[in-house]
């Protein structure tokens, strides 16, 4: 089982890196969004109610990471859907490996990619003048929350691909990434959000994931936001993995 997961994970990761034109958007979109948000709205840190931050870039880094991880999830879904469309998925199913390894292998690659995505944004932030207030331990905390959340988002993408079975439908999820982000406190402090988004954000796990990754960047590591972030990311991952495995079983029954 472990060998199959590792082998499939390595294959998925290698495929991703062999096509940089498809990997680039995972970091390019959020990086561009980050640039536009910071360039256009940098003066909002002077608004009453905005938390004390070194700059708007520090505040926005966690939003960019969350967005990138969500796009990574969509990308994982598209990759699985294309394997279904191309017939490779059926050959995997026929091979002598535990079938759940097909899902877990893809998620292992997604988790590794998530770590790299988080590191990318930390590097970009530092290059353009951001400060990581909690230092190296803070960076590790951000990577940990990002890896768990990325795995969860990847599992959602896999589940959608197994249900939809075509890449264009999974691709259609792309705009919805923004929906779930907009109804969270990823981009702006919860106290400054308009109603009813401020209320919805309170129940959106993305708010806690983003705030958990943001806390070590804008202040020293605080137990509450970091633990809430980890719990939210872990919860999303557990539920999504269970749903993706269930979707796999349904698909195999119908095949």
């Amino acid at each position: 089982m472990t060998r199959a997961v590792v082998a499939l994970g390595r294959r998925a990761l290698r495929n991703t890196f062999r096509r940089p034109q498809f990997l680039a958007p995972l970091v390019a979109f959020p990086s561009l969004f980050l640039a536009v948000n910071v360039g256009g709205l940098h003066r909002t840190t002077t608004l009453p109610g905005f938390p004390a931050v070194h700059g708007f870039l520090d505040f926005q880094l966690a939003a960019a990471m969350t967005q990138s991880l969500l796009l990574g999830g969509v990308s994982s879904g598209i990759a699985i859907a294309l394997e279904i469309e191309g017939g490779f998925f059926d050959r995997l199913v026929a091979s002598p490996i535990p079938r759940v390894a097909i899902v877990l292998g893809r998620l292992a690659a997604t988790a590794a990619l998530a770590c790299l995505q988080v590191v990318w944004f930390i590097a970009v932030g530092l290059i353009f003048g951001a400060h990581i207030a909690a230092g190296a331990p803070g960076v590790l905390v951000v990577i940990l929350i990002g890896a768990v959340a990325g795995t969860g988002f990847g599992a959602i993408g896999v589940m959608l691909a197994l249900r939809a079975r075509n890449a264009s439908t999974v691709q259609g999820i792309f705009p919805l990434v923004f929906v779930v982000l907009f109804v969270s406190s990823a981009f702006f402090p919860r106290d400054l959000l308009a109603s009813p988004v401020d209320a919805i954000a309170r129940y959106n796990p993305l708010s806690y994931i983003a705030d958990g990754m943001r806390d070590p960047i804008i202040s020293s590591i605080s137990a509450a936001p970091v633990l809430e972030g980890l719990a939210a990311a872990g919860g999303v991952a557990l539920v999504a993995i269970a749903l993706s495995v269930a979707a796999l079983r349904t698909r195999l029954r119908e095949a």
Partner: peptide, 8 residues
């Protein structure tokens, strides 16, 4: 979404 998040 934008108008809810960045209205301030």
């Amino acid at each position: 979404g934008l108008s809810s998040v960045f209205s301030a």
